[in-house]
Amino acid sequence: MTRFFIDTWVQTVRHLLVIMRNPFIFLPNIMISLFFLFVYQGGLSSVANLPGFEGSYLAFILPVSIVSAAIGGSGGAGQSLVRDLENGYFSRLLLTPATRISIVLGPMIAGMIQLLVQTVLILIVALFLGLDSASGILGFVVVIALAAGFGLAFAGYSVGVSLRAKNAQASQAGTFIFFPLIFLSSTFVPLEFIEAEWLKWVATINPTTYIFEGMRAVLIEGWQWAPILQGLLAISIMCALTITFASMSARKALNRD
């Protein structure tokens, strides 16, 4: 068991070093998140004046910015693995007695750490922009937890795709799922404001909607348990699916046929 912890630790640290030495791994992602915050907050904030809209538009758009950061951070897990596969380092690791699962877990944990740092950073920026949480500091903890849960689910997906594709282009293509995930949802306006029936329907089955709604409830309305629990449920279902997918892919990739 200690072997497992040491191996996982060593690999996590390596992936964190790689992330820190390649700013292009995290900078674009942070930029996109800040873009959501500044541009939409500046450009669409009049939506908040519509009748029936509660709270500030900043608190409304912040979850989009955070979920986008979460996807970038955890999607990096898969990219890191592809990088290892492509430069041959993955084989070098397989030739050591290192616990097999640590080799896959290392990049996932590093991705989660990247996600946490980015989420906290975005929250700080939002505070400077005048964010006011209806449920206080503890509310932020819930927002971070929802972001981490969503990130873990996405990390599972990205690792699974990468281990199957084994090349950068294909795994990059796989991350484009973030597009429908983020935008076919109550991204810019509340669910009840969406007019197109098809979009409303897609948004209702899109798990991201429940992450947005959970975060918004905490930030705008205070301790509303129903949306928070729905968010957690969406995360549990997604994690169950993607982590299973990731471990099946890992078994296949490590299978020595």
Partner: peptide, 22 residues
Amino acid sequence: ETGIDPALTGRELLEIQARHFG
């Protein structure tokens, strides 16, 4: 094909390798 992570230094790679060998 050499198995080297280009973002790390030679020293780091050797240390990681040694750690995995216990």
